[in-house]
Nucleic acid binder design. Sequence first.
DNA 1: ATCTTGACAATTG
DNA 2: GCAATTGCCAAGA
Length: 107
Amino acid sequence: MTKKHPMDTDLDQRIWLTVCAIPAGKLSTYGDIAERAGLPGAARRVGAALRKLPHGSAVPWYRVVNASGKSSLPPGRNGADRQRRLLADEGVLLRSGGVSVLKRYRW
DNA sequence: ATCTTGACAATTG
DNA sequence: GCAATTGCCAAGA
C-alpha cells in the first residue's frame, strides 16, 4: 500500500510528546522542540500543534516560548498572562522576557 | 496542484 | 529594543 508511515500523520502527537519531556521548572523554544521532534525548521508547526490541545490537557504547552524568551500568545488573561502565571508557579520568571531568561531556564 | 495561513526565527534599518 | 522583511514548513481550503 502506498500508505505513508504512521508517524507522518502524527506530527502533532510527536510534538506533544516532546513537549511533555520538558522538565518542570525549565522551558524550551518552538524551534528547539521542532528539532527534537525531528522536524528541523518547522517551529511554526509546533505552535500549530499546541494550539490544537484541548483545554485542560496534561501537555505543558506553557513551557514553550519563542526565541526571544517571550510568550507568543496574544496578550490577555487567557493568553500571555496565563502562560506567565503557570511558569511563575514553577519558579520560572519571564519578567520582561528576554534572552537572559532563556540562558537561565532553557532545557 | 496552487494559494493562503500561522502559539516561529534570523536579519536588517 | 522594536518594526518590517524574508525564509520556513506543513495544514487547510
